[in-house]
Amino acid sequence: MLETRGLTAFYGDFQALYGIDALLAAGETVAIIGANGAGKSTFLKAIAGLLPSPPDAVRLDGVAIGGLAPAKVTRLGISLVPEGRKLFPSLTVEENLLIGTYGRAPGGHWNLARVYALFPVLAERRHAPSTALSGGQQQMAAIGRALMANPRILLCDEISLGLAPIVIRDIYNTVPAIKAEGASVLLVEQDIVQAMAVADRVYCFQEGRVSLAGRPSELTREQIHTAYFGT
């Protein structure tokens, strides 16, 4: 469904991605793992349109979408849950969720009631300023906000970052429900164990290149160690 071919990305003169070939099939969960600075977040940003890329480098159902403005990418059904949550501080929790409907495709499963059913704690805090939420609640709000656009593809950037293990477990427990409504998930995850547990396939990035790809069950610890750190 979503495919990148030779995707490159630059921050000014600095090249962060050196030709990434990757695939996300419909209904799949794919995890990107790798060390800090390997280009994982950059990869998601390039897909979301936050970084310029050649049109052919990103394809959705075979259509070239590389280099489209982020708002257009969202309207095509690709929603990014950005690293660090990035909730809007002057909006309440509910307003943050409602903002997610701007890029909404018509129809679709998700609405306020269903997001609240997925994350009941958000319903309790719906009128609170988003800045008053705990880290885990903020992460739930950020995921809910992305779901409000009814994405076909959900991009999650480091959703476990800085959270307690029990909260991480709660959040990852919602992934099956999200997938059940027809979204494929592409997630970037520092926590290898978590990534291996949730993903159908993983890509390991190293210095802007894919160093390893495969199904978690088929990869050995040694392979991952090498792909993660280099030798």
Binding site: G49, R75, F88, P89, S90, Y102, R104
Partner: peptide
């Protein structure tokens, strides 16, 4: 308000700044 807070994230929401 969202655009005023964070124009980049607002675009991710499908808002054309």
């Amino acid at each position: 308000r969202a655009t005023s807070d964070d124009p980049e994230t607002a675009q991710l929401m499908g808002i054309d700044n």
